[in-house]
Nucleic acid binder design. Structure first.
Lengths: 152, 152
DNA sequence: TTACCTGCAAAGGGTTTGCAGAGTC
DNA sequence: GACTCTGCAAACCCTTTGCAGGTAA
């Protein structure tokens, strides 16, 4: 996967976010931009608690409530995607310039793997036409047992 | 959809469940069979609370803890499938003799349509082999705008 | 100045856990 | 008879909410 933590990307998403907030009448607070920047510095899935600790360790202290608030805004403008991998912990993922992929979840250890299969897109097209839906996006999860858990 | 609440199906899933428990060394309690039967009497998705209330209203009182326990077993032997529709409430669905289907959700009116495409199963097989996962089930959702909402 | 936003802490709600008694094998 | 399962309630934990002070516009 290409490095998408470069300053160019950081600037672009910041601009997208700023425009979105202006359009929606939300205030552009330093906390919100700091959270966006933190999210785009990492490539892994994350949950709110992880993000909270990361920022705390950088001495940039924001409350959990503000993180939840900001992540909602980021979902609204498509800069972040939300996943529910079977557990009750919401997982998030940055969504700008990320290649299309889907997820495999290990029901034993919780490990999440990614894969990409072009047939998913083909099915989306076929089904959209057949059912007369204008499809915007999909979510596909495979649940099973990963290699490590099969062996142990 | 065909009626799958017939006694034949009830008997068959009961047998599958019994065999599974024997194999795994779990005890065959009346509560567990009652929960299985209740699940297979309905065709809709359900959550634990709904199931709990249904059984309570039938004067078959089981605790929530037992329902959670039993549903886990049913997931283990593939008689039930679990969904996480974005909320924090787990949704379940019976899985035996249900024709494989996935869902289209209209983001405008909330309508849910079902479709079936054999390529989903093919992808599951391919990805399972490639990623060395023993895949038990999948969930696939397409989000978009249905015909009626496009027209209005 | 006017809301909206933040931080804190408590409340909410689905799920899990601990324990005593009941029931399966 | 041994040991798991059940039921109950409390504990857990992620998320949301309420409120007082702070800050963008």
């Amino acid at each position: 996967m290409e490095d998408i933590s470069c300053s160019d990307t950081q600037d672009t998403v910041k601009e997208i976010f700023a425009n979105y907030m202006k359009q929606k009448g939300h205030r552009k607070t330093p906390e919100r931009f700091a959270i966006l920047a933190e999210i785009y510095e990492h490539n892994e899935h994350f949950d709110v608690e992880t993000l909270f600790v990361f920022m705390k360790n950088k001495n940039y202290q924001v409350s959990r409530a503000t993180i939840y608030n900001t992540v909602d805004l980021l979902l609204g403008c498509g800069l972040v995607v939300k996943h529910q991998f079977g557990k009750n912990i919401a997982q998030y993922e940055k969504a700008f310039e990320c290649s299309q992929h889907d997820h495999l979840i290990c029901q034993s250890c919780g490990r999440v793997a990614e894969f990409c299969d072009p047939r998913v897109q083909q099915i989306q097209t076929t089904v959209g036409e057949l059912m007369e839906f204008k499809i915007n996006y999909h979510s596909l999860y495979f649940y099973g047992i990963c290699k490590k858990c099969q062996d142990s």
